[in-house]
């Protein structure tokens, strides 16, 4: 088969993306001995010890569980509050709507570094420090504005006549919203959930600042591999590989909507 120029460019780009990931996988299948002793393009003696370390130690695998718990809580909170707000922004004009919208977005622009310390103090003072809900609430800082922004884009694409027809047919607001409107923008909701998942899953600074033991995230757990005796490269690489898997699964499920979602529904 002849490969066109476009496909060559795609193949090159994907190679560039995959090479560092391949290297991580390669490292995770080597023992530390092998990593430090010599240089080889693939593992000479494949070992799953690094993965076993993670799966048998609860302080390791609980990191993944904790991360997934706060990511899911965050996604649910963000969607619940963003749905009505996005509907309001997409359908109605009201006092201060434009300013309000930019102010919401401005929270997406706030550097987490600015908020790390105040968050620590705020959540400590209300007794939420080291809980999943604290991290989930902290991540709404950037996820809620984003969710409103994306959902508003998708809702704008639904003709207003549908709302009006439903009201004429005697639907109340809540019944209309739940039965007719939400199914119409289901793909938009899926994409929004994907984005909330993504940004909450990848964040380190806030989740590390707000947790200590009980709700410690995987990102924070990974810093354990650096000790006085050096870095445990094998386990670090294995832990890294395992963090990629949930993301890869999520992408696979939304792959058909991903392009539209990345344009925040504005295409």
């Amino acid at each position: 088969m002849r490969i066109s120029r476009s496909n060559w460019i795609m193949i090159l780009y994907i190679l560039f993306l995959m090479l560092p990931i391949y290297w991580l996988v390669n490292m995770s299948l080597k023992s530390n001995q092998e990593i430090l002793d010599g240089f080889s393009l693939w593992p000479q003696a494949i070992t799953f010890d690094n993965y076993m370390t993670i799966f048998t130690d609860s302080s390791w695998y609980m990191g993944y569980v904790n991360s997934i718990i706060y990511v899911v809580i965050n996604t649910i909170i963000s969607l619940t509050v963003a749905l009505p707000a996005a509907y309001a922004f997409s359908r109605y004009r009201f006092m201060g709507d434009k300013h309000l919208f930019f102010w919401l977005l401005s929270n997406r622009m706030a550097p987490p570094a600015v908020f790390a310390l105040p968050f620590f103090q705020l959540y400590s003072s209300v007794g939420l420090f080291d809980t999943h809900i604290a991290v989930a609430l902290a991540h709404t800082l950037f996820n809620v504005p984003l969710a409103v922004w994306i959902l508003e884009g998708f809702m704008r694409g639904v003709p207003k006549e549908i709302d009006e027809t439903a009201y004429i047919d005697g639907y109340g607001f809540f019944r209309f919203f739940g039965k007719i409107f939400v199914p119409l923008i289901a793909s938009g909701i899926g994409v929004t959930a994907f984005f909330c998942f993504m940004f909450s899953w990848v964040e380190l600074l806030l989740s590390r600042t707000l947790t200590a033991v009980d709700a410690k995230s995987i990102a924070a757990t990974m810093t354990r591999t650096v000790s006085a005796s050096g870095v445990d490269w094998g386990v670090l690489a294995a832990a890294g590989v395992l963090t990629i898997i949930p993301g890869a699964l999520v992408i696979y499920f939304v792959r058909n909507h991903i392009a539209k979602g990345f344009a925040l529904g504005r295409v």
Binding site: I21, V202, I218, A219, M222, T223, I244, P246, G247, I251
Partner: peptide
């Protein structure tokens, strides 16, 4: 899309 879903510390 894969690199976008990798935690930043990873």
């Amino acid at each position: 899309a894969l690199p976008l879903l990798i935690p930043w510390n990873v």
